[in-house]
Design a protein around this nucleic acid. Structure first.
Length: 648
RNA sequence: GGGUCCAUAGUUCAGUUUGGAUAGAAUGGCUGCCUGCGGAGCAGUUGGUCGAGGGUUCAAAUCCCUCUGGACCCGCCA
């Protein structure tokens, strides 16, 4: 907030300069940035460079002219309201501003309450839907899936914290090829349902299915083509919910899903509704949409060429895409259309919501079921009775092309482009060291792509367990008198925070090379580092007696703060603008990076500015700074899912 | 063949949307700092032809072109 005021003041003055030159401010993109060196002041403006094009003059001369002649009174206004103490011109043509620190600090310390408040600007009436995780229910989550879940969950937390109305969906492809694979294995390849005496398989059913059953059946296809035939039959049969194989499949899916959710809940991910592909197929959604697509001439029936007999969508950029095959079955891609339209609320809802279970955060998880017409009064939940403002889907970037096709179809149906968006993230690969450690062959590459089919992956549960163990040891090193139960509790919180922070801090569009040792570090730019600096701060906080006495009044005489303290104050001041930027760019990474920067500055402050043994005004000021830092750290930690700890 | 994305310190990554001053973190290596509010920390040091070449510009890691290396997408599979 304080920063915004400052920037606005500078911007206003720069606009005055523009008026002098008779240039429309809209034609020129004035940037107010922070210079790389302290000697250049606190803010910097590029106006002179921009004008040099129009005026065909040396930017340095323009800058000097602006500062000395156009805005001369801007310089000597020290006793007025201005927050700017001085203006200077630097080498190539920068106009640099120095803050009047006394005034700045005065505003900061008298507005701590509002500065440290979470900015709220969502509209509660409009609903935002986020779909994430959506892992095929035939295997346990691996570290690549965590990336999806954590990004989605952090985005959810970010939007929720800023006052938006958000719900999270998790799509379960319970009738796809991957599920058919393990069903084939159980039914026709003599692979038992239960994990009996198979080495290296943990107790969880999802691990058994993913680590053993799925890999095994894929190996068997090479020598048993009959199994692939069986799989194809199963796939077709799964479209009918009443046949025996569908009922069997539902049982298997349910067990895998239960275990997958456990992993997600362990990582503190929140969901509201589970959607099932089988229900989308069984409902009449597709029939209605197919009709509409035909009526609106979005798709056409091909009478010649390679797609003869199919219903085809012609994309402007991607060419032809088959939606309905010549045998009248619908393609994988076509199934996404009814789901997208359902999410957007553009079609009559054929589903009702059924309570499944409570989650780790005491919220309820629901699943869709097809409406029972005879039972009209059944509990139709109001969870999605809002106007859907936006749907955001977190997807593997390899699906981006299909999603862009989908958007094209939605636009053809008259839906605004902005309503449906997707975030494609690059995959997680394994570092050579890690691949080697888990016994995967290397092939002379920089990193190894994971593959569920080939059994090349590191499971989420394995990574989490490893971290818990590591944290456990560290806690025992540091705490002599502590109960085993408490150690376990804290170790888990540290491990979760480490994983979540790791997966959200990277840019979504860059590949991550996952190394089981380096990536799951507890030191440096990590979740535990943030937790540690928070714990240090909190410990001081708890030792302050009568803390309210310090927070109420303040004396602003003699504010001789250290440079570290000023840096921390500046950083804290950027809280709300960082949150806003993060929301506007739908990028939770920005919050993570900000949080780390605050934590690092706080550790500096901690080393150099003692609080408890300090007295008088200095103590007062430092306590205020401590409290405001802890407060914004809490906000940010909540968004990232890094647990605030008082002891670790 | 058509298209998308990536390449920055030994390693893992920010910075590229919107061009700005001496390219930043973390980690590793080396060196200091605990009778102090918790050393999971702090300070210092080491380490970069920003893949290569050209272009645009007062100014390029950032924009444009070419090339090299890598990943991926392009099915009546899901």
């Amino acid at each position: 907030m304080v920063f915004e005021i400052l920037k606005e003041e500078i911007r206003y003055q720069m606009k005055q300069a523009l008026l002098h030159y008779n240039i429309n401010e809209k034609d020129i993109n004035i940037e107010i940035t922070e210079p790389p060196l302290k000697e250049y002041g606190d803010f910097s403006c590029n106006l002179a460079f921009l004008l040099s094009k129009n005026l065909k003059k040396n930017p340095f001369e323009i800058a000097k002219y602006i500062v000395n002649d156009i805005l001369p009174n801007f310089k000597g206004k020290e006793n007025e309201k201005s927050l700017i103490k001085s203006v200077s011109v630097e080498k190539p043509g920068f106009i640099n501003f120095t803050i009047d620190m006394k005034k700045f600090l005065k505003i900061f310390f008298s507005n701590i309450q509002s500065i440290t408040q979470m900015p709220k600007y969502g509209n509660n009436k409009e609903l935002i839907l986020i779909e994430h995780t959506s892992v095929n229910p035939n295997k346990a989550l691996h570290v690549g899936h965590i990336r999806n879940a954590v990004i989605g969950d952090c985005l959810y937390r970010l939007l929720l914290s800023t006052g938006h109305n958000v719900k999270v969906l998790n799509y379960v492809d319970d009738s796809g090829l991957q599920v058919a694979d393990i069903i084939t294995a159980f039914k026709y390849a003599n692979i038992p349902f239960e994990e009996e005496n198979i080495p290296g398989i943990t107790k969880k059913f999802d691990h058994y299915c993913g680590n053993y059953v799925y890999v095994k059946i894929n190996e068997l296809y090479a020598t048993r083509p009959d199994l692939e035939v069986k799989r194809k039959i199963i796939l077709k049969e799964l479209e009918n919910p009443n046949v025996e194989i569908s009922k069997f499949t539902q049982q298997i899916v349910k067990r895998v899903l239960r275990d997958q959710l456990q992993t997600c809940w362990n990582l503190k991910c929140h969901y509201d509704i589970l959607n099932f592909e089988s229900q989308l197929i069984q409902s009449d959604l597709w029939d209605n949409i197919f009709k509409t697509l035909k009526e609106k001439k979005v798709i056409r029936f091909e009478t010649s060429g390679k797609n003869v007999g199919c219903w085809v969508f012609t994309s402007k950029t991607e060419g032809d895409k088959v939606l309905v095959r010549s045998d009248s079955t619908i393609t994988y891609f076509a199934k996404d259309i009814p789901y997208a339209l359902w999410k957007l609320g553009y079609i009559e809802n054929p589903f009702e919501l059924e309570f499944i279970s409570q989650q780790w955060d005491n919220t309820n998880l629901y699943q869709t079921t097809i409406k029972n017409i005879e039972n009209e009064k059944s509990n139709v939940h109001s969870l999605i009775d809002f106007e859907v403002k936006k749907v955001i889907t977190i997807i593997d970037y390899r699906q981006e092309r299909l999603q862009s096709l989908l958007v094209e179809i939605l636009i053809n149906l008259g839906i605004e482009k902005t309503k449906y968006s997707y975030l494609g993230y690059e995959p997680v690969t394994l570092s050579n060291k890690t691949a080697e450690l888990f016994g995967f062959s290397l092939k002379n590459k920089k990193s190894t792509q994971m593959s569920g089919r080939k059994g090349i992956f590191v499971e989420a549960d394995v990574a989490l367990d490893l971290l818990i163990k590591k944290a456990h040891e560290e806690i025992n090193k540091r705490n002599e008198y502590i109960s085993e139960r408490e150690v376990s509790q804290i170790a888990k919180e540290i491990a979760i925070s480490a994983i979540r922070y790791y997966f959200v801090k990277h840019d979504i569009g860059k590949m991550i090379t996952f190394d089981i040792n380096d990536s799951l570090s507890l030191e440096g730019d990590t979740g535990p580092y943030i937790q540690y600096s928070y714990a240090r701060g909190k410990r001081i906080y708890n030792k302050i007696e009568n803390i309210n006495d310090y927070l109420e009044d303040y004396a602003l005489t003699d504010l001789d703060l250290t440079s570290t303290e000023i840096e921390l104050i500046k950083q804290v001041s950027k809280f709300s603008s960082t949150i806003k930027e993060s929301v506007n760019n739908t990028d939770p990474k920005l919050v993570a990076r900000y949080l780390f920067a605050v934590s690092a500055l706080f550790n500096n402050f901690y080393e150099g500015s003692p609080i408890l043994k300090e007295t008088g005004n200095k103590k007062n000021i430092r306590i205020k700074l401590l409290c405001s830092t802890l407060s914004i750290m809490e906000h940010c930690m909540k968004i990232i899912g890094v647990t605030p700890l008082e002891k670790m």
